[in-house]
Design a protein around this nucleic acid. Structure first.
Lengths: 240, 240
DNA sequence: GAATTAATCAACCGTACGGTTAATAAACTA
DNA sequence: TAGTTTATTAACCGTACGGTTGATTAATTC
């Protein structure tokens, strides 16, 4: 029997240091706990789908990573696609909430924009690490089974950014800019940076030590983007 | 161009869920033409891999799109992966050449940077439409079979951008900026924009007509990025 | 504590995939 | 023209995939 020693009743969630390749991240307790099963599958799915995409992730790998029988994917989520949908919602909903909350901020527009960038960065680097990769993956895969579900989130986030930008223009702090293109460039840069973090780490790791550059931290990049956007959008005194 | 479609050996309908119209992009000449076969496969692969990724593209779909027998993928390229590698090289090599040529430009740094953005945009929108999606896809898929082959291209492009940026700082036109982060934000925004173009088109197409916004053109976005970067990097707001 | 429901498991199933093969026709050579 | 090489084809093969099933065990109900 494969039943192993009881380790913990609650998902540890504490990642080991560095990148351990095939870590079986959850050993499930002897006693049943369907909520923990669902949670383990959601967690494993967020990691694997973000890393390898929907097609590139097998149900066997999913189940193994979650420490759970493969059939439970169908049992709890109705199949691989159902799990993917659930993960998408669980990943994007918190982001949307935090972003939309910025709509009502009393801060001046440039500060609100900085705040938006900080929220994106904090979400991507600490709260929902899978979020940028999943966003990018969905958006470059037309015919993905879940793009339509993504739309409301995207619309809400875009709406918030547009709101901030238009306020800034109205208040004379931002030059006349196209809100959609500004939104796309800002979110695109952020999503690209965080989604490609692992690949960049791999690339520098495979370089001769002489050429190595230490990769920029999430916080540093957030600050970079804050400066770039506020300066790039700022209304300058002498211009039409 | 659109010559005869030889006997449809495949079932006429049912190309898959939500698949776009499968246009047979290559006529089949009665006489043999191995060079054209290779070219058709490269072309079909560039489209399909960019759209659905490596895993998401089957050899059957590849061959059907190219109007070619499936076994010819192995015959000419040694397999699906060999075809993918060839496409990657054929896609990135022209980009690198055009970018690296900018290294020696006599223009002042801000102009050179504008030129870089224009080159990226022109490549993505006209010359190699598959390029941004393939770049993004490779970078968010660690363990992709071809990341290592991508490295030299990335290094050369980054080197060029860094060269331009450092020159701009030296000449007092750019403020002190981190070249790597600047490069990542610029290329990230551009790649994201062009790679997600189809998805954005789909999203607005599925919206109620009242809310529809016409999507930004490639040229408009290039100009947006040129302004955003030059203003955002400028030492003093005032020059371009 | 018996009966019922919910959760989990190992084994199995049909299919689609990437790749191979043996045959064959076209192109080339001499 | 005969012989050889190159390009192409349909059919086939082993495998890995996602999903299902029937049994089994833990939890819940009464």
């Amino acid at each position: 029997m494969a039943r192993v020693t009881i380790s913990e009743t609650v998902p540890p969630a504490a990642d080991g240091p560095g990148a351990a390749a095939p870590r079986p991240s959850r050993r499930r307790p002897e006693r049943r706990d369907p909520a923990a099963t669902r949670e383990a599958l959601l967690q494993a799915g967020a990691e694997l789908f973000a890393l390898h995409g929907f097609d590139g992730t097998s149900t066997d790998a999913l189940a193994r990573r979650a420490g759970v029988n493969k059939a439970l994917i169908s049992y709890h989520f109705g199949g691989k696609l159902g799990l993917y949908r659930a993960i998408l919602a669980a990943t994007f909903e918190p982001v949307r909430e935090r972003v939309v909350a910025l709509r009502a901020t009393p801060q001046p527009a440039p500060e609100a924009l900085r705040e938006f960038i900080a929220v994106f960065g904090e979400t991507a680097s600490r709260r929902q690490p899978a979020f940028p990769a999943m966003l990018v993956r969905e958006l470059i895969t037309p015919g993905s089974p879940a793009v339509s579900e993504l739309r409301p989130y995207l619309v809400d986030v875009l709406g918030t950014v547009r709101h901030i930008l238009e306020r800034g223009v109205r208040d004379g702090q931002f030059r006349e800019v196209d809100p959609l293109m500004t939104h796309l460039s800002m979110v695109g840069a952020l999503a690209f940076f965080f989604a490609t973090g692992p690949a960049r780490a791999r690339i520098v790791a495979s370089m001769p030590p002489a050429l190595k550059v230490q990769p920029p931290s999430a916080d540093a990049f957030v600050r970079h983007m804050q400066d770039l956007m506020t300066l790039g959008l700022a209304k300058r005194p002498g211009r039409s």
